[in-house]
Write a protein that binds this DNA or RNA. Structure first.
Lengths: 230, 230
DNA sequence: ACAAAAGTGTTCGCTTTACACCCATGT
DNA sequence: ACATGGGTGTAAAGCGAACACTTTTGT
């Protein structure tokens, strides 16, 4: 088949992390190309015989060493024809979440450096990557309200206060501890463990665990997970 | 820049229409290619110097003569590597809505035929287009619950019963007329006109109009448009 | 007058909100 | 004993759900 088309297909990953009550984004410093040395989202060109989702996972691995437990397609950026100065490139972007403590950011051969940046301190980025992050952040905020995805940013076992602070930080508003706890627990997908965590002074907190089996069951039953806050 | 990549980028449009209390999808019959004569979604390859959104609009115009008032990006299909048997093609799909009565489906030079099909009577389709429609339908159903997009399927001025039936049909469940009307009117984006429509017997219905200026204002204020039904 | 569709209010129950004190631990 | 964070209940308000009769027109 002869189709005269010279558009390249790339994938990019916006990976959110949460550390010390700060929302962070994973960035790499480019080693080659027009934007050499500039910071950018991890990503790269898709191979001819590779799924789009495989491609993001591969690029993430190659450039940062990170393997995600949550990753979904975000949006395809292709209306700005000159977003890459070299040639026409469209970017199928993906949106992921991890607990940075579970990851080792390895200095790879494909990127000069890989680092977590707090969302308020993102440096100047290559391409239109800043716009992409903005879209991803909106998606993240929206999703927090109707899907229990926040857990992907936390440790396997976590105290309730971690979850509260995560919501407070990302949504950037106050929440009522009592109402929040009641609401989340009412869904039934949190499991109480018998471990506790003591953080210096104060009463030690029970640790909870997200039970994804129960969650999937509830999801199948069509339960709504909308969270409204006081 | 030398990148060895041979992936083609296409756009496809899922256009929903609503006629005689039936949800419909706009399809074309292919004139060329491996799937010649088969029905498929309107769409085609993106030009090198063309925005993705321009490309869908152009293809729709070329193949069906239709120009949409509502069109948004749906999803990019590129995990099935062999979705097009000729070569690797990814499809950036868009999701649109029109009132079919406002459109003239023109027999174009680019497609052999263009027709509305009721959603329950979609024929065998080329490529993975049936899957794409399934995704689009889910999006449509979900959106109806939190964004007032249903109006795009109706005439400019419409009786309340049309809107009720549209929700009933698409969401496939009963809704309470009184609660529905109260809820929708409470948002304030519907304008009462002084026209009425009489449909044979029965009391003539006031016609309403969607006021998009008010809607955009409310949207900016962060109003939630969630609709729950009895 | 009867059939057909449009228009309209009220009550009940549940969910959300607002709000403050006691508990367990470390220093 | 005091400082620090964790854990918990209740009352009021607001929203969603359930529900049936009247009005206007055509035949």
């Amino acid at each position: 088949m002869k189709i005269k088309q010279n558009i390249k297909v790339a994938v990019d990953a916006i990976v959110f992390g949460y550390q010390e009550t700060s929302l962070q984004v994973l960035l790499i410093q480019q080693k080659y190309g027009a934007f050499k040395n500039q910071w950018a989202l991890p990503g790269g060109f898709v191979k001819d015989n590779e799924q789009l989702s495989e491609a993001v996972e591969r690029e993430l691995k190659e450039e940062t060493g990170v393997k995600l437990k949550y990753l979904e397609q975000l949006y395809t950026f292709g209306d700005n024809i000159n977003r890459d100065p070299r040639t026409r490139v469209i970017s199928v972007s993906y949106f992921g979440m991890v607990n940075p403590k579970n990851m080792i950011l390895k200095a790879t051969t494909d990127a000069q450096d890989a680092k977590w940046f707090p969302i308020e301190k993102i440096p100047k980025l290559a391409y239109d990557h800043k716009d992409i992050i903005k879209v991803a952040l909106n998606r993240l905020k929206a999703k927090l309200n109707y899907q229990p995805i926040g857990f992907n940013l936390l440790s396997d076992k976590f105290p309730f206060s971690d979850l509260e602070n995560l919501y407070r930080t990302i949504l950037d508003r106050e929440i009522d501890r009592r109402n929040f706890r009641k609401k989340i627990l009412s869904f039934g997908f949190l499991e109480e463990t018998d471990e506790k965590r003591s953080i210096g002074s104060g009463r030690p907190a029970k640790l909870f665990k997200f039970n994804s089996k129960i969650y999937r069951q509830l999801e199948k039953e069509g339960i709504s997970f909308e969270i409204k806050f006081a």
